[in-house]
Lab assay of single mutants.
Amino acid sequence: DHWHVHIDGERIRLDGASEEFIRTLEELIRRGTDARELKEIIKEYLR
């Protein structure tokens, strides 16, 4: 599956992301997590 998110107007691909990770991201977004912080979390995950 190819997922991607838009954060700060930037399109970030989440290739190979699990549904669990996507749900976690959605939860963080709902909580109002800062965009820079979200991008860091995604970069760490994709390593």
Rank of each mutant, 00 (worst) to 15 (best):
R11M: 15
R36T: 14
V5K: 04
G9P: 01
E40M: 10
I7H: 01
R23I: 11
E44L: 03
R13L: 13
E37R: 14
E19N: 11
E37G: 06
I22A: 04
I29V: 09
I29C: 03
E26H: 08
I41A: 08
I42S: 00
R31M: 14
H4W: 07
F21K: 01
E26N: 10
L14G: 02
W3M: 12
R31T: 12
L28D: 01
I29G: 01
T24E: 12
E19C: 08
A35G: 11
L25M: 07
D8Y: 00
V5G: 06
T24W: 11
E26R: 10
E27L: 08
F21G: 00
G9R: 03
R31L: 14
V5C: 03
Y45T: 11
G16I: 07
S18G: 11
D8F: 01
R23Y: 08
E37S: 14
H6W: 05
T24F: 13
A35W: 08
V5F: 05
R11V: 15
R47P: 14
L14H: 01
D1G: 14
I41F: 14
E27K: 07
R23A: 12
D8Q: 09
L28W: 04
F21M: 07
E40I: 11
D1Q: 09
E40D: 10
D34T: 14
L38I: 12
H4I: 09
G16Y: 11
I22W: 06
L38K: 00
R30G: 10
E40A: 13
D34Q: 10
E26I: 11
H6A: 10
R36S: 13
D34W: 01
S18F: 05
I7F: 03
I22V: 12
I7G: 01
E27F: 03
G16T: 09
E20C: 03
D8R: 03
Y45G: 10
I41T: 06
G9M: 03
R47W: 06
R11N: 15
G32S: 04
I42C: 02
T24Q: 13
S18I: 06
R30V: 10
A17D: 03
R11E: 15
L14R: 01
S18D: 12
H2G: 05
L46W: 11
I41G: 00
H2Y: 10
I12H: 04
Y45H: 14
A35E: 08
E20H: 11
R11C: 08
E20Y: 05
A17Q: 04
R13S: 15
I12G: 00
